[in-house]
Simulated scan of single mutants.
Amino acid sequence: MHGEYKVPGGKLVVVDLDVVDGAIANFRLAGDFFLEPDSALDAIDGAVNGLPADADAQHIAASIRAALPVDAVLLGFTPEAVATAVRRSIGNATTWRDYEWEILHPGPLSPAMHLALDQVLTDEVGAGRRGPLLRFWEWDRSAIVIGSFQSLRNEVDLDNAAKYGVEVVRRISGGGAMFMEAGTAITYSLYAPGDLVRGMSFAESYAYLDEWAITALRSLGIDAFYQPLNDITSPKGKIGGAAQKRLGGGAVLHHVTMSYDMDGAKMVEVLRIGREKLSDKGTTSAAKRVDPLRSQTGLPRAEIIERMTSTFTSLYGATAGEITSAEYQAAEELVASKFSTEEWLTRVP
């Protein structure tokens, strides 16, 4: 069995192994990481050989850590990264290049339609009727998108939202509220088979699925990095946040909203951002929490999206695609039956 795991911001970890009578055998670790002393490689191989094939990642990492020489130095990887590669090999995980990706970038759509398309396209990928997709969003109005489990009245100042004509909708994934106006945010969704993140923890999958975006931002001169659990940030401030949802067909919906040119003053009027959340981010002003991409690049929004598209294509291969009429129709039906209804919006009042 063969498994690979690219450590976000680090190196590639590659493992090969057999499973004999329920135990790991003939384990071999390789990769482009740095490891001292050389004997530590044999120590890691020995620690994994003989472990139960169903050992979880925590058990595998603990065994490796216990076997390492006291003077061992691991650069670009960790025992946990090796454990993830082992679980991915035994679970027959796939890699980005195992698929034929399509990139979708339709014109402006309503907030409810965007959320309905997320559900429809994830279902299509999970059912095998579509290959995996990357979709960039365009907005036709101002909106607040709250997480699936957030309280509407706790998160949104409905009076101010109405005053500014900001539509409020609820998505199917968890996480926090997002405020955006047309042209002020860069939002994308990934629709991927579950095998792509097999063997990873939720925390690992967040960083793994956004590493290409970090690479694209760095190519634009932004010192971007991932901050667990789900933030893309920089020394100058938070850039954006991610959310995920696993659907019944096994597919993963992973979407990210990054600020391009946020109106911070309006944001704090329409969102109820509490002191506890601000202190968690180490800031005292909600208006300063989100640092726009425009201020860090000086580039038009379209150029940043183009760089992200070209980076994704160069790393994983992709072609331009389109949303089908049947997919639009299915999404319109979901808008009417779910995403535009008061019942869905107020499911957590």
Rank of each mutant, 00 (worst) to 15 (best):
G249R: 13
A61P: 06
T84H: 04
E36L: 12
W96C: 03
R171I: 05
L17M: 13
L12W: 06
A302I: 10
K266T: 07
G237A: 07
L220Y: 04
W139V: 00
M1A: 04
F34P: 00
M180A: 15
H2G: 01
L209D: 02
E167G: 11
W137M: 04
V166H: 06
G31S: 06
I232E: 01
A127T: 03
A85S: 13
L315H: 07
W96Y: 13
L334I: 08
K163Y: 07
M200D: 01
G31T: 03
P111W: 02
F33C: 10
V348F: 09
A224E: 12
L247R: 10
W96N: 04
H255M: 11
A93M: 01
G147Q: 07
K163F: 11
I273H: 05
E327L: 05
D16F: 00
A320E: 15
Y191R: 01
S148Y: 14
E36W: 09
T215V: 14
R198D: 00
Q244E: 11
G147I: 02
D18E: 15
E306Q: 15
Y99R: 06
H105K: 11
Y99D: 15
H254C: 05
A81Y: 03
I90S: 03
R28G: 01
E155L: 09
D223G: 00
T94P: 09
I64A: 01
D45K: 12
N49K: 14
T78M: 10
K266P: 08
R141A: 12
S142F: 00
K266N: 03
K163M: 12
G241N: 02
L334W: 04
K236N: 13
S340A: 15
G176K: 07
A25Q: 12
T122G: 03
S151L: 02
L68G: 10
V166I: 13
L115N: 08
D56T: 02
R170S: 08
E100G: 13
L41H: 04
A162E: 14
L345Q: 01
M180T: 07
P111C: 06
K277D: 07
Y164S: 07
Y206Q: 08
T311E: 13
I214P: 02
G240D: 01
V120L: 09
I239W: 06
P349N: 03
L134C: 05
E211F: 04
W101L: 09
A330W: 06
D98T: 03
K281P: 00
V13W: 00
